[in-house]
Simulated assay, not measured.
Amino acid sequence: MGGVAGTAGVNPYVQLVRAPAALSVLGDTVTGAAAAGRPLRGRRLALPLASVAIYWSGMALNDWADRELDAVERPERPIPSGRISAPRALGVAAGLTGAGLGLAAVAGGRDALKVAAPLAAAVWAYDVVVKKTPLAPAAMAVCRSLDVLLGAGRSGAAKALVPAAVLGGHTLGVTALSAGEVHGASPARAAGALALTSASAAAAVSGRGGAPAHRVAALAAAAGYGVSVGSKQYAAVRKPTAAVVRTATAAGIHGMVPLQAALAARRGGVLGAGLVALALPLAKRLGRKVSPT
């Protein structure tokens, strides 16, 4: 995914890894942990950091893999602009991957590594091999789903399959639409993303049981998600120009936060959901300085 944002004076490494966008990733492990009934406490608090490190590695690897295309379409990015060399960017990606796996091992031992290792492998496969194929949106969705399962661990993965699938479905739509950030998209593609957003919002609040307070909190977060993301995607359906698609893509990335909050709250993680929701205003503010895409 690519985009345009004012980057004057921004550290090139911050731009390379899309540092502020990591705020939209923290809630993945919170959501998975809530679904599995394994709150993030003690050493497990390192799981969101492991998730962020692997996410940042993917962003650096993305720019390394796209360096020739970016020289034409996005010359302001760190590699084509000459602020970071291609070998250095690849080294950053490898280092962050190692850091993510190390943090996962500290947080959850083999149980966490059994998810973190496939997640890291999926990220590298996406950026290096799959991204330029029709399977790219599905591959990105798999990465996001695995990130949710990281919070649950291998032993709790079965309980977190639904929220993992919901966030994966949302990612599928956002990634497919983001292909039109430079040259525009088709109304059908934008409509597909909107349909997935609607389905994700409904799935986030579905299910039986749960305390009334949890259901109300989930409904409020899901409504915020549906409106904030859906309105931008509807605009892309009506006018799928590159500029409108970029706006819809950025909204989709930021929309991860209220969707995570809805999923966590529905499964009893109201405190975690509240903390996740606090990341949204900061993510939007920082996103004006460093593009999240």
Results as ranks from 00 to 15, higher is better:
residue 106 V to G: 03
residue 34 A to P: 04
residue 6 G to I: 08
residue 204 A to C: 13
residue 172 L to M: 11
residue 177 L to Q: 03
residue 259 L to C: 13
residue 108 G to W: 01
residue 279 A to H: 00
residue 215 R to A: 10
residue 53 A to C: 08
residue 283 A to R: 02
residue 67 R to L: 09
residue 34 A to I: 08
residue 57 S to E: 06
residue 169 G to Y: 07
residue 183 H to S: 14
residue 25 V to R: 01
residue 206 S to L: 12
residue 68 E to N: 07
residue 107 A to V: 08
residue 45 L to C: 10
residue 133 T to N: 08
residue 152 A to M: 01
residue 225 Y to N: 09
residue 154 R to H: 15
residue 207 G to F: 06
residue 12 P to I: 11
residue 221 A to F: 09
residue 59 M to C: 15
residue 29 T to C: 04
residue 261 A to I: 12
residue 63 D to N: 10
residue 249 T to R: 05
residue 27 G to I: 03
residue 124 W to A: 15
residue 254 H to W: 14
residue 38 R to V: 04
residue 159 K to D: 14
residue 50 A to Y: 00
residue 229 V to G: 13
residue 39 P to A: 11
residue 209 G to K: 13
residue 44 R to D: 07
residue 47 L to R: 00
residue 93 A to E: 06
residue 204 A to Q: 11
residue 64 W to I: 04
residue 258 P to M: 15
residue 164 A to V: 09
residue 114 K to M: 14
residue 5 A to D: 08
residue 232 K to S: 15
residue 236 A to D: 12
residue 255 G to A: 12
residue 134 P to K: 05
residue 174 V to L: 14
residue 122 A to W: 00
residue 147 D to E: 15
residue 202 A to V: 14
residue 23 L to I: 01
residue 244 V to P: 12
residue 176 A to L: 15
residue 47 L to A: 04
residue 248 A to P: 00
residue 38 R to Y: 00
residue 139 A to L: 05
residue 94 A to G: 15
residue 91 G to Q: 11
residue 195 A to Q: 07
residue 247 T to L: 10
residue 105 A to N: 03
residue 173 G to Q: 11
residue 117 A to L: 14
residue 214 H to Y: 09
residue 28 D to A: 05
residue 163 P to I: 14
residue 153 G to P: 01
residue 11 N to V: 14
residue 66 D to L: 05
residue 178 S to A: 15
residue 119 L to M: 09
residue 87 P to C: 11
residue 153 G to Q: 03
residue 235 A to M: 13
residue 51 S to M: 00
residue 164 A to Q: 06
residue 283 A to L: 08
residue 109 G to W: 07
residue 92 V to E: 12
residue 180 G to E: 04
residue 1 M to I: 13
residue 293 T to Y: 13
residue 60 A to I: 04
residue 24 S to G: 10
residue 260 Q to M: 05
residue 218 A to N: 09
residue 273 A to Q: 05
residue 96 L to F: 05
residue 89 A to N: 10
residue 34 A to E: 04
residue 8 A to D: 05
residue 114 K to I: 11
residue 156 G to L: 05
residue 266 R to K: 14
residue 124 W to D: 03
residue 104 A to W: 00
residue 67 R to H: 15
residue 96 L to I: 15
residue 19 A to E: 04
residue 207 G to P: 14
residue 77 R to A: 02
residue 201 A to E: 13
residue 282 L to E: 08
residue 43 R to K: 10
residue 33 A to M: 01
residue 115 V to M: 01
residue 276 V to R: 00
residue 111 D to K: 03
residue 188 A to D: 13
residue 13 Y to A: 13
residue 26 L to C: 02
residue 210 G to H: 08
